[in-house]
Design a protein around this nucleic acid. Sequence first.
DNA 1: AGTATATTTGCATTCGAATGCAATATTTAA
DNA 2: TTAAATATTGCATTCGAATGCAAATATACT
Lengths: 341, 341
Amino acid sequence: MSELPSKSKRATSYDVARLAGVSQSAVSRCFKPGASVSKKMRDKVLAAAKELNYQPNAIARGLITRRSNLVAVLVSSQLNFYYPEVLFQLTDRFSKKGLRVLLFTINEEEDVEEAINQIWQYQADGVISASYLSEAQHKTLEDRQIAVVMFNRYFNDIPTNSIWCDPTDATDELISHLVDYGHKDFGLIYGPKYSMVSRERMEIVRTCIHNRGAKIVGETHGNYRYESAANAVQELMQSSPKPTAIIAANDMMAMGALDELKNVMGRSVPGDVSVAGFDGIGAARFAAYELTTIRQPIGRMAEAAVEMMLQRIEKPETSKEKRVLTGSLIQGMSTGPVKPV
Amino acid sequence: MSELPSKSKRATSYDVARLAGVSQSAVSRCFKPGASVSKKMRDKVLAAAKELNYQPNAIARGLITRRSNLVAVLVSSQLNFYYPEVLFQLTDRFSKKGLRVLLFTINEEEDVEEAINQIWQYQADGVISASYLSEAQHKTLEDRQIAVVMFNRYFNDIPTNSIWCDPTDATDELISHLVDYGHKDFGLIYGPKYSMVSRERMEIVRTCIHNRGAKIVGETHGNYRYESAANAVQELMQSSPKPTAIIAANDMMAMGALDELKNVMGRSVPGDVSVAGFDGIGAARFAAYELTTIRQPIGRMAEAAVEMMLQRIEKPETSKEKRVLTGSLIQGMSTGPVKPV
DNA sequence: AGTATATTTGCATTCGAATGCAATATTTAA
DNA sequence: TTAAATATTGCATTCGAATGCAAATATACT
């Protein structure tokens, strides 16, 4: 008949217990899903909890249960619209499963180390990496019993829990379309040299091009960002013969390439040059681009990643798994027949 | 001489203390910045800590200090490139200040309630809201002593800690340019009805237009997303006289409007119609758009928000503050003189 | 009713680090 | 050299919820 509860001080399970006239353990059990509690007890406790605005303290809970229900998500902070899409998809889904997202943006290699430290300090239950992560760093996390799921990357040498998108079929479809359209000379824009995704995608592209009897007249690198495509295109257009089709390792660069061709170099797309990318980000569908692209099913990939993460957190010992979804070709307006000479 | 440390079990401050032959309190103090520790002690402890891979457990620390060093960030999950930019800027900066970001994506009103619950459970020290937040919800957070900083929004009726961007001068500059270019008939695309940002921006636009002796020939609403601009533009172009300049409440809609005009309706921009937006997002600078827009200094706003948040967390009692930065006009290629008839 | 069984509840302890206070060590001043 | 002042260290307790185990209560069965 005296304490004002929530105003100055947060109510604890003891406060609720006192008000409801039961033990603290009882309160705790009322907030634990499968626990053994009678209906009468639960009603009493929940009423008291409501009155005091009580919500269990996740910090205290985490301390004793050794489960923080936090998942760290590592994404690159570069201006590549792919990352926000992935991040938001993951976050929405984790929320629904009762996990909170601790966000880490990665600019440079060192940021990963710092993130790993923080992840360890905060006892995150798991990590989704959609960013660089060395094998050593991966191992550090595993050693510390933190579940790791790699999003759109994996290691060749060690088993990894990962979600991967296989663009092979869609790429073949893309290239054969282009070849059917009369394209024989291709220019390729890779992502950064260290990027496995880029290497893998472009390797498939190369193979398909050769299989279809066409050839690569120029290859260069960008850094996955829009701006980096401008130089790349300039360089490719120096080749002789000039490419009639340009494939970029992601949509951001494809958009940059398309803009450079149309708006700076005054070429028409797809009239003079066809352009295609990878990812299928939202912006690729904007009318200014209508990009032909190999789409990753980001929603389904996120779904799979979340599922795998829950799995790993529950049963850390089960063997590693690589889940592969397939990319699909989106036929946009940025590719078309070669202009008759 | 027996326990293997990190492999199966995480080292605690006690383990470090034992190895270094000191007390647990000493270990704790070695990890607290300003604490009283001799050099000898610190060296011994840090060496032991290193050997055991020890990092203080943020969860346990949070329990006793009542500071989680977590900041919740609420952003809308809609596909509007403005949010990721803000989010990443905030996250980068919070990291540097030793705060972790707990991310909440908001789809619908109810998500906010859930987020508030989680914030309470996780004892977040503060909340940055770049999303809906009702006065009642704001009050709930304040009552619970959680620092709240509103990003790009504020309440009229109650004092709020907020960061706001004032576009007045830049808008006046924009409109006067347009009027000088001969524009007399304006079409406006608002954001969603409930959006204060939209209302405020467009009110300024209206005022400027009237002050300059031009007139508004059509007004309609979008939902801030790219796609929503298509209908809006169709509607505006039914007006008579038709607008020669269209101002959208954000860049996403301006981009959508521009694309609808150019690529669907076959008008030239800025030849037939000039288009301008608000925000100054990265995509607005793409060559396909080169949007004229009123830029928010997102980096500086994020900086200010982080600063204010730290301030609030340290000294919750200091009086509320609204910090206003000014927007600036970016002259792109999407606006120009009216075509002579 | 009386016993056996199943369900609820409470007690006491635990998780890992921080901190006020007292005890000890070190430095300074005289 | 010694007393006084200062800097370090350790002890013991605290934060708030979860849980194994034992005690108490309810239910089922004969």
